[in-house]
Amino acid sequence: MGEELLTIRGLRAGVDDKEILHGASLSIGKGETHVLLGPNGSGKTTLMNVIMGHPRYEVREGTVRFDGADLLALPTHERARRGLFLSFQTPEEIPGVTVENMLRTARQAITGKKAGVLAFRKELAAALATLQMDADWAGRYLNVGFSGGEKKRTEILQLLMLKPKLALLDETDSGLDVDAVHLVSGGVRAFRTPENACLIITHNAGILSSLSVDRVHVLLHGHIVQSGGPELVDEVGAHGYARFLEAEG
């Protein structure tokens, strides 16, 4: 395993009185691509929200360390500034704020430097081209009136522009047509370097076909019940989660 980037230990968290994660543990090293599998409602999105610091979720126990820092002690924006990025399962619409405006503000927030207008525009144009998005996309209001697939593509656009150390992709491939899955997958490939890492939540193996996967984890009822190599993806693909459910009893 590469140098540790994210380490989650015994994470118990939930909303109100309801515990959703019952002691989840997971580690991701630099330069790695991990996959998180699990049936609907097993707590995958909740885990992402907790890692990112969503205020609705309360952590009861456990630790999350990211690049040497105690993540749980930091506000959400500070987690992003330290190199964490979440591609949302359902991205928010922000009326009146253009894609470009948001990206410029975020870039400035993360780097602490004013982005040069020309260089930024050029970079944005390149990222749009990678994802085969029209140039005028940047001027549209963030996710407003976007189709499901367009929203997902816009998440990957943000990934390319913000260059985090760890990208959490929550079902970024769901609801995409075959070609769009390739584009998104290509976007992730373009993003990955030996210095960064990503965790992909998916219900389809399609997005993984052109990526080289290092580790796969199965989340069930708020626990990681198994971690293994890429072969786990095929196994779940072929047999579903029955084996894990039985084992759980």
């Binding site: 990112m52 610091g53 969503h54 205020p55 506000p75 959400t76 924006h77 987690r79 992003a80 500034r81 990025f85 979440l86 949302f88 991205p91 928010e92 922000i94 009326p95 009146g96 704020v97 405006n101 948001m102 503000t105 975020a106 927030a109 993360i110 209001y141 943000q158 913000l162």
Partner: peptide, 24 residues
Amino acid sequence: FYLTSRGIREEEARAMIVRGFVEP
């Protein structure tokens, strides 16, 4: 949450949303 997850401070996220609201 969406905007803060992009590194933007909460107060500024609020201001962005308000500015966006009146933008049109």
